[in-house]
Design a binder for these strands. Structure first.
Length: 274
DNA sequence: AGATGCACCTGTATGC
DNA sequence: TGCATACAGGTGCATC
């Protein structure tokens, strides 16, 4: 599932392929993945536009077009965005094809169709996607202990749900929430109100460290994730908590536990995480 | 306002 | 073998 490190890796891999390139036309096999505006206007809005630059905000990928409009893409669970030659074989469940100059194509595929795209005209306020509700970027100073504590310490939820709240911090998903809590030595089911100052500090340090390491490893390809050239990442080989329930802890050797928190599979070490 | 549960989807794994 | 069921989890929404 693409989280911040995967979307950042996707952005970096697409940058050299898309920057300065013109979109000739849009082929829509499943227009329903377009969330705003309607498919017709979306297709007209991107046709003929040159892609000036790429960006990322939380788990959203942004393409800045030359007329000042912004294209937002969210991959949710199984979305993929791959740029390749027109002749290259399509991934299954390809819903959109952005035909580009020079015989290249940018394809959006998504098995479960949770992902979506939004086109915001120049100056148009984003009142459509969830991007407007995002909290600060954890890799741009948004993860200081004071802010985390202020935002969460009076909430009644447990800490894993707290750091998954995109309005508190942008970009963490299930994988890196488990990894960050393991690194910080904090049980995921602890109430937010129970964390000490030292624990808020440990967590605010662990989150950027975990995310940076995952970006260095070019993302986690547990099942579906591929970068913009269709390549898998390497970070799945470095996970210490996610999906390791029943296995031995890589730090202390105890048997890792698996539970459900907020409807999500959650793994932790009952010995290392207090 | 904040917390909770469900809907959205389909591929894969499991049980009978 | 075939079928039913559970599970994977990010987000938006309804409900309390």
């Amino acid at each position: 599932m693409p989280e911040l490190p995967e979307v950042e890796t996707l952005k970096r891999s697409l940058e050299p392929l898309l920057t300065g390139r013109r979109i000739l036309s849009l082929e829509m096999k499943r227009p329903e993945v377009i969330k705003h505006p309607d498919a017709e206007n979306f297709a007209q809005g991107v046709a003929g536009q040159r892609i000036q630059s790429l960006g990322r905000r939380g788990k959203y990928l942004l393409l800045y077009l030359e007329n000042g409009s912004r294209l937002l893409i969210h991959l949710r669970m199984t979305g993929r965005l791959v740029c390749c030659e027109e002749a290259a074989e399509e991934l299954p469940h390809t819903h959109l094809c952005f035909h580009l100059e020079n015989g290249q194509v940018l394809r959006f595929s998504d098995v479960r169709r949770f992902g979506g795209l939004w086109l915001l005209a120049a100056g148009e306020e984003d009142q459509y996607s969830g991007m407007k509700k995002l909290g600060p970027e954890p890799l741009e100073g948004g993860c200081c202990p004071e802010r985390l504590e202020t935002a969460l310490s009076r909430r009644k939820i447990c800490i894993k749900q707290g750091i998954l709240d995109q309005s508190v911090l942008a970009g963490l998903g299930n994988i890196y929430a488990d990894e960050a809590l393991f690194r910080a030595g904090i049980r995921p089911d602890r109430p937010c109100s129970s964390l000490s100052r030292a624990e808020w500090e440990a967590l605010s340090q662990a989150i950027p460290e975990i995310l940076s390491a995952a970006i260095r490893n070019r993302g986690t390809s547990f099942s579906d994730y591929l970068d913009g050239e269709g390549r898998k990442g390497e970070n799945q080989n470095c996970l210490q908590a996610y999906q390791r329930g029943g296995q031995t802890c890589l730090r202390c050797g105890a048997v890792m536990e698996k539970t459900r928190i907020g409807g999500r599979g959650t793994c932790f070490c009952p010995c290392c995480q207090k």
